Simulated assay, not measured.
Amino acid sequence: MPHTADWEVRLHLFEDEGKTTARAVLETGTSSLTGTGTARRAAGDEDVPDIGDEFAAARALRDLGGKLLRTAEHDVEARGAAPSPRESTPYGWDM
């Protein structure tokens, strides 16, 4: 049976005095996950807020991705499957 879903990710960026904080929120319609990330401009760096946004956003998305993978692993284990000991992607889901 075909399955289609639309999930939304919202990225919120906040910059204050050389520190950028990002929050990535995934809404699936039935649940929500949030990832966070930060970036800080070094004292001698040029003030380019876009660069801080990029680093903070990337870190928030990476954090969100890790949480989503852990959620999927937990859901699979709850159904009686265990991760395989091999080095390839567990559960047959490709990256």
Rank of each mutant, 00 (worst) to 15 (best):
A5D: 10
A5Q: 06
A5S: 11
A5K: 11
A5T: 11
A5N: 02
A5C: 05
D6K: 07
E8Y: 10
V9W: 10
V9A: 03
L11S: 03
H12E: 14
H12V: 09
F14M: 12
E15I: 04
E15N: 07
D16F: 11
D16C: 03
D16V: 03
E17P: 06
G18Q: 04
K19L: 01
T20S: 04
A22I: 03
A22L: 01
A24I: 08
V25F: 11
T28K: 08
S32E: 15
L33R: 02
L33T: 06
L33F: 02
L33K: 00
L33H: 00
T36R: 13
T38F: 03
R41G: 05
R41L: 11
A42W: 01
A42P: 01
A42F: 07
G44D: 15
G44H: 15
G44N: 03
D45I: 05
E46V: 03
E46I: 04
E46H: 09
V48T: 10
V48H: 14
P49L: 07
I51T: 13
G52S: 10
G52I: 00
D53K: 13
E54S: 10
F55Q: 15
A57D: 11
A58C: 02
R59K: 03
R59S: 03
R59A: 05
A60Y: 04
R62G: 08
D63R: 09
D63K: 01
L64M: 07
G65R: 15
G66L: 11
K67V: 12
K67G: 12
L68G: 11
L69C: 15
R70G: 07
T71L: 14
T71R: 12
A72W: 05
E73I: 12
V76Y: 02
V76Q: 09
V76W: 08
G80C: 03
A81T: 00
A81K: 02
A82I: 00
P83F: 01
S84A: 13
P85V: 10
R86Q: 14
S88D: 13
S88Y: 08
T89P: 00
P90Y: 02
